[in-house]
């Protein structure tokens, strides 16, 4: 069956055809719905790149779950359920990352402050041992309380990369400072 044969089919029919292995049916479903899915995700995410990544994940999950689709139910709510679950998974993952990082910061900041008070020159010296971009990312995050988006703009990189720089910087700083005094 060619694209023109399938163009008039309903979404539900296309899903049935797709379940039987016709990739063109998937292409038509993507053409019909990807714009709306991206619109929905773009409203919820600041970064267009993240929305585009999640759009791919939505259709990837649709592909992997296609055998679960029940033809008697309308396609649109099913697609929405997938989109929503991908979005919620993304949020959970992000919250988990933020919580881990927050925990790291809480463990780090008193140590660095104690260190800075006792010997500010040595504190600066240790911070200087970090690579330049990590040092700047950590300083911006810890002392200026900048968001990852702000750090990313200052360092001309992506927010994901900014997050990684902070995490790596903190880990390295912790290793340099040694175990925390209780």
């Amino acid at each position: 069956m060619g694209k023109s044969d399938l163009a008039d089919k309903s979404d539900e029919d296309l899903m049935e055809i797709y379940k039987m292995g016709n990739a063109i049916a998937f292409e038509i479903l993507f053409e019909r719905h990807s714009g709306r899915v991206l619109g929905y995700l773009s409203k919820r995410l600041k970064l267009p790149r993240e929305a585009k990544d999640l759009l791919q994940e939505v259709f990837f999950k649709l592909h992997r779950s296609r055998h679960l689709y029940n033809r008697t139910l309308p396609f649109s709510p099913w697609l929405f359920s997938i989109t929503r679950s991908i979005w919620l998974d993304f949020l959970k993952k992000r919250q988990l990352e933020d919580a881990t990082e927050q925990e790291q910061l809480e463990r780090m900041v008193p140590t660095t402050q104690e260190f800075a008070i006792s010997d500010s020159n040595a504190g600066i010296e240790i911070l200087n041992q970090l690579p330049a971009n990590q040092k700047e990312a950590v300083s911006l995050r810890v002392y200026d309380e900048a968001t990852f988006e702000e750090i990313a703009i200052k360092l001309a990189t992506s927010p994901e990369n900014a997050r990684q720089l902070v995490n790596r910087g903190l880990k390295r700083l912790k290793a340099l400072l040694g175990p925390r005094k209780e």
Binding site: S34, K43, F80, T83
Partner: peptide, 13 residues
Amino acid sequence: EYTEFTTSDEVSV
């Protein structure tokens, strides 16, 4: 949210 989804503006992919 579903209503919002169905009325979302289409973004060019």
